[in-house]
Amino acid sequence: MRKRRTSLLALPFTIYALIFIAAPLLLIVVYSFCVSPQNGVTLTLEHYKKFFDFSNPVYLQVLWRSIYIAVISTAICLLLGYPMAYILSKLRPGLRQVLSVLFVLPMWMNFLLRTYSWMSLLEKTGLINSFLEAINLPAFNIMYTQWAIVLGNVYNFLPFMILPIYNVLIKIDQSVIEAAQDLGADSMKVFGRVILPLSLGGVASGISMTFMPAVTTFVISKLLGGGQNALIGDLIEKQFKTTGNWGFGSAMSVIIMVLILLAMNFTSSYEKDREEGGQLL
């Protein structure tokens, strides 16, 4: 009886969440099927047809580019991040604590400022090129290309890859590693057969935590990618901020949500496994 009454404490939040979390998402779905949602409800598939128009695949190309850039960025994050997480996890606890704070630190610095700072580093006359010029090396011009977006993504989301992997790695019981050695595994095999499989849960959450912001970003593409490399995020932003075609913008938001759901479905099977396993002592 008393428990029930205490659970009423969640009521204000539940109401708030229904209005500002559940209803808005529902609205997106409804709007995506409306002709011009600002002026009443007339159902249509027009927006989705426009997006998936194979005879004029401009939007599909943008979607493809977004996925392509996000996949590459995520892969680079994984390749750079896993070794870093592994190195961190092997340090003694005190140093480990300090260094992991240092990794989080840039992440909490205003992300627009950091991205903007890359502009001054990457520009034709920027710091990197001045430096390269000074030591007589050819200039490095990736500003306003897809690679600049990849770099911005990797820079901004690398900590999202490192931290979950690191968190899983430090939880692996030392005795499990000893058990593998005891059964005949040398250090390569200990890594390949025990540490790596046990850390896949962290890899999975790292992938979803980097892929999602990378595939939906519009800031990084706008600042570093210039005009020619618009991503799906840029398209959505444009519908709501300039064109005013909310129906089409909603439809693309739904498409992005489906994409994310698919990606999470792919990774969460791993994460669930690990959660179960993690309970074992």
Partner: peptide
């Protein structure tokens, strides 16, 4: 049920959350 409602904004992309809030405010 309530927990998954609570975690939705964390799992969802910021741009979708932003857009969805824009819609509800105007509605």
């Amino acid at each position: 049920a309530v927990m998954s409602l609570a975690y939705l904004p964390m799992l969802n992309a910021d741009i979708v959350t932003g857009v969805s809030l824009l819609l509800i405010f105007s509605a």
